[in-house]
């Protein structure tokens, strides 16, 4: 545990000045920003929206559309590739493997950094949604303060679900990123899987593809665009995540040449 903390501190420092921060910022705030701009442009039509009782659930649902289909899966693909690529690109695996750290600590600390970036992404996105409600209210005189209370419980539960949904993507990408020096491999496979997932949405076994879960989670409010299975896809997501993380660790241990 103590070695994990040491390893994690080191790993976190490596993300400084890297693209990771920008990815988090852009990926999480793009949609809220777009909403803000759209609302300011159409500020005359805002009054009924802000007076509505279900203002918050509506906003939440709007914001998650692009997120669930597009930003979240792609962010998971890119950020995982980025973190694993840091070592390959700098020829630094040999440095990492001569540190007094067990393989487990190295593996888990890197994964931990990715998880923390994902959490940051969620937090910023939630904050962004709140801002996308508040900023138009502040800037336009005629709009009233949003009616209705913020349903924190529902939001928290949705966050947790989407978080679980993206875990299998991270697990597969982590395996590929550790394994392949060339960053085009994890990125390429990731994009293809994402496109495949989109294409497979109407298929009744689409839920077997580990990249589909955030999309299915969103589209269950919008049936017709996807085949929504009756079973709980979150269990599938968790199962895939555990399986691929274990596979990644086994492959990581089995490497004959370390850097």
């Amino acid at each position: 545990m103590i070695t994990f903390v040491r390893a994690f501190k080191g790993e976190w420092l490596k993300t400084r000045h890297s693209l990771a921060g920008w990815l988090v910022l852009c990926g999480s705030l793009f949609t809220p920003l777009a909403i803000i701009v759209a609302r300011l442009v159409h500020h005359r039509r805002l009054e009924p929206i802000y007076s509505a009782e279900d203002f918050w659930p509506h906003l939440w649902q709007d914001a998650w559309q692009s997120m669930a289909i597009f930003f979240l899966p792609l962010f998971a693909i890119m950020v995982t590739s980025l973190i694993t690529q840091i070592e390959h690109r700098n020829n630094a695996w040999k440095q990492v493997h001569t540190l007094p750290l067990g393989l487990g600590a190295i593996f888990v600390s890197k994964l931990g950094v990715i998880m923390l970036l994902i959490v940051q992404f969620f937090v910023l996105f939630n904050l962004g949604i709140w801002l996308s409600a508040i900023i138009p209210y502040q800037l336009t005189a005629a709009v009233p303060y949003p009616q209705g209370a913020i349903p924190f419980g529902d939001f928290l539960r949705d966050n947790a679900r989407y978080f679980v949904d993206c875990l299998p993507i991270i697990a597969v990408q982590y395996l590929l990123g550790l394994r392949f020096r060339n960053f085009l491999v994890p990125l390429g496979v990731g994009f293809l899987m994402w496109i495949g997932a989109l294409a497979a949405l109407p298929w009744k076994f689409g839920y077997l593809i580990p990249y589909t879960y955030s999309m299915l989670d969103y589209l269950k409010h919008d049936p017709g665009k996807a085949f929504i299975p009756t079973i709980d896809t979150h269990l599938f997501a968790l199962g895939y995540a555990v399986a691929f993380i274990m596979a990644a660790y086994v492959l990581f241990r089995a490497m004959k040449e370390r850097g």
Partner: peptide, 28 residues
């Protein structure tokens, strides 16, 4: 043990102090 094998393994996007700070954390 301290080592350097073939090319140095420093992180391009960090400065010298930050590179050493990573190791300083690990070795305490």
């Amino acid at each position: 043990v301290g080592s350097m094998i073939e090319s140095p393994s420093s992180y391009d996007h960090l400065d010298a102090t930050e590179n050493l700070a990573i190791l300083q954390r690990v070795y305490r």
